[in-house]
Amino acid sequence: MGILSHVGRFVLLMSRVFRRPEKFKVYAQQFWKEVDAIGLNSLGIVAIVSIFMGAVTTIQTAYNMESPWIPLYAVGLAVRDSMILEFSPTIICIILAGKVGSNIASEIGTMRVYEQIDALEIMGVNSSAFLILPKILAAVLIIPFLVIISMFLGIGGGWIFGVMSGVVTTYKFVYGITYWFIPFYVTYALIKTVVFAFLLTSIPAYFGYYTQGGAVEVGASGTKAVVYSTILILLCNLIITQMLLA
């Protein structure tokens, strides 16, 4: 299948996803389940990744700046901006594309090959909306919070490890992270995050929904889901950055 027919089928699927639910209560229950599965269940990995990214960025920047002309507080500034602009929104979303994306694709793919999607359809349930809408909404709502948490943890991790390894002092670091703070960077990061959250749920859902065959194909859908959502996240990152920051 060519890329254009994938795009066409994706758009058609999305047009069926964003429809009025048959019953709000049932969808709401699904939604909270997804908030739990996508959001709360990812807190651990987000925290670990963020703290380590912040710590490593701090130490690396400090070593690269051993020039007398660059003030030491620039370390804090660099960590802050790289976490807010890139590491938290983009890297975290790519990691979530791996974790959440493969999960969504194989869950929906399994439902497809074991006729559970057919069973939903036969009951008169809009299977695409029922299975996909709660996931997209949950991701779009909860992942920005994960990213904000990641920003704090990343900067915090940088501070703690920076001070512990002696490359920077608390005073300089804190001065750095408050120096010339541009609030729009956070807005920009959150806009990106919302787009990425949509991509990393809708694309795996698409591959899962159109799985055909058996266990092998379900596995293949999971792989495709991760690869394509990662590529599209990177591509959209470029486009959004060009649009908002350039």
Binding site: Y114, E115, Q116, D118, A119, I122, M123, G124
Partner: peptide, 15 residues
Amino acid sequence: RQEIGMLFQGGALFD
């Protein structure tokens, strides 16, 4: 389809 009930060959229960 709300008036249709169907039993699938493989059951198709929501697991």
